[in-house]
Nucleic acid binder design. Structure first.
Length: 477
RNA sequence: GGCCCUAUCGUCUAACGGUUAGGACACCAGGUUCUCAUCCUGGCAAUCAGGGUUCGAUUCCCUGUAGGGUCACCA
């Protein structure tokens, strides 16, 4: 069987787009599933959009996400210009491409007049019939030029896509597209095909936005005589904004590094994004990267675009945080490290996480959620009284708690024991839970909504707890 | 506008041509030791429209409609 080789071929424009992450993931998964190879290629052929350090950043994020590529060094297109130029010239020699000396102004005028006539903007082949002498002369003079691919007219081009099936277009609808730019760099179409061929890519998995240019790529393969080595094409349904337009920066975060910075776990990100456009065929929702490597398949890729739903991502992330805290696994270590960066570590961080971690959608919320441990905000005395209680009972509850907690030794200061003590006080003195739990909790947190009193006591430890309870008693007297 | 693609709850999605159209998120209600979160139980909610084919269409075909993508010396 043919060896499976996939690739992720991003253009280094600054950050890793969440859609790019999904594309990378699917390529990675398909390779892993088949014991194949997953290669990385940097498509940096646009000199105008170069961003310093973008490629390095991309590589760093990919590694951070666990999507390691199998080539020692990624292929860098800007280092291979000679190869593309050579290939383009060969096509010219075979009359499958031709030099074009048209100025930008001429092309623009052409476009405008065509649009005015409601025609499709397309190159008019002005330079197609230049004589060899004219071409020689212009080249000798160093005139600016590009190389265009000659799209055979009056034919149809059919290409198969593994997801969308047969795509057919009329060649007349294709333009004589540029393959080599006037600065000597190749366009995407040329470089992409040459490199995929050289890397022996078996499956080209990329976003659906490429579907319209698929026939161009097929024509290029033919022109090079590589019909028998064309990869399988797999176009992935688009990731969408809530308004169903292509997922873009304008409507929220789209950079993987932004999500990471906000405290989203890579496990949650990967899991969620895997389910966008692919379905496992079962009701299973939680997949580790290893699970996905086993389960992934191209047949179960959907055709319709999928809205990127932050609420569902939040749910996944919250689940992963809770699971990690319960299981104390590798992800937990990661969470612990991240939390250290977020919080001052006056209190036992593990206790803080155990109590407040289960209430988070993402780690960056920890700062606010845990603020009350470090600084007790001022609160009105009335807040201490539960709506179904009154001043007398509240005072009684608070004083009982204060007196009895003071008697507990440091090593008895455990969540379970603390809860049992408070519960016993209620029973013994015939109080309602709200007469004691509520005011104790408010006294400790300064908030109407918070973790339960025993949990907070456990985190704050004895000294600080008693201090806050005394403060509350004073407020009521 | 030309070309291409798509169409099941608000969202992600299941359903060999025969199901009370299933699950998850979100939302709503109730329950669990005070509040919040978790957890449990229940609820709301969908086959874009019209024609065919068929004993029978969510499913196959056609048309329409809607949405999206793409039409660069960007990828």
């Amino acid at each position: 069987m043919k060896k499976i080789i996939s690739r992720f071929a991003p253009s280094p424009t600054g950050y890793l787009h969440i859609g790019g992450l999904r594309t990378a993931l699917f390529n990675y998964l398909w390779a892993k599933k088949n014991n194949g190879q997953f290669l990385l290629r940097i498509e940096d052929t646009d000199q105008n959009r170069l961003v310093e350090g973008a490629a390095e950043n991309l590589i760093k994020i990919l590694r951070e996400m666990g999507l390691d590529f199998d080539n020692q060094e990624p292929m860098i297109q800007s280092k291979r210009i000679k190869i593309y130029q050579e290939a383009a010239k060969n096509l010219v020699a075979e009359k499958k491409a031709y030099y074009c000396f048209c100025s930008a102004e001429r092309l623009e005028n052409l476009r405008e007049s065509q649009q005015a006539k409601k025609q499709m903007p397309r190159y008019d082949r002005h330079c197609l019939n230049l004589s060899p002498e004219e071409i020689e002369e212009k080249l000798a003079k160093g005139e600016k030029h590009v190389i265009r691919f000659y799209v055979p007219s009056e034919k149809k081009t059919e290409v198969n896509d593994l997801v969308y099936g047969k795509i057919t277009v009329n060649n007349l609808d294709l333009d004589d597209f540029i393959i080599l730019k006037s600065d000597g760099f190749p366009t995407y179409h040329l470089a992409n095909i040459i490199d995929d061929h050289e890397m022996q890519i078996s499956h080209a998995i990329r976003g659906e936005e490429w579907l319209p240019s698929l026939p161009k790529h097929y024509l290029l393969y033919q022109a090079f005589g590589w019909e028998n080595a064309i990869p399988e094409f797999v176009h992935l349904p688009l990731l969408l904004n809530p308004d169903r337009s292509k997922l873009s920066k304008r409507q929220g975060d789209v950079a993987v590094e932004d999500f990471l910075a906000k405290g989203y776990l890579k496990e949650a990100l990967l899991n969620y994004v895997a389910l966008l456009g692919w379905n496992p065929g079962t009701d299973q929702e939680f997949f580790s990267l290893k699970d996905l490597e086993k389960e992934f398949s191209l047949e179960k890729i959907n055709k319709a675009g999928a809205i990127f739903d932050l609420q569902k991502l939040n749910w996944f992330n919250a689940e992963y945080i809770r699971q990690a805290i319960n299981n104390q696994d590798a992800t937990y270590q990661n969470i612990l490290n991240e939390s250290k960066k977020i919080l001052a570590t006056t209190y036992d961080l593990e206790k803080v996480l155990k109590v407040s971690g289960s209430r988070l959608n993402n780690l960056s919320e920890l700062k606010e959620a845990a603020a009350f441990y470090y600084n007790l905000a001022d609160y009105p005395a009335e807040m201490l009284i539960f709506k179904k209680s009154d001043l007398e009972k509240t005072k009684l509850g608070l004083n009982l708690a204060l007196e009895n907690l003071a008697k507990i030794t440091e090593d008895q200061w455990q969540e379970k024991e603390l809860f049992e003590l408070l519960d016993k006080l209620i029973q013994d003195h015939n109080l309602n839970p709200g007469d004691l739990f509520w005011p104790v909790r408010v006294a400790l947190s300064g908030q109407e909504k918070s973790p339960s009193p025993a949990e907070i006591l456990w985190v704050l430890e004895k000294e600080e707890s008693l201090k806050r309870l005394k403060q509350a008693v004073d407020k009521l007297s």
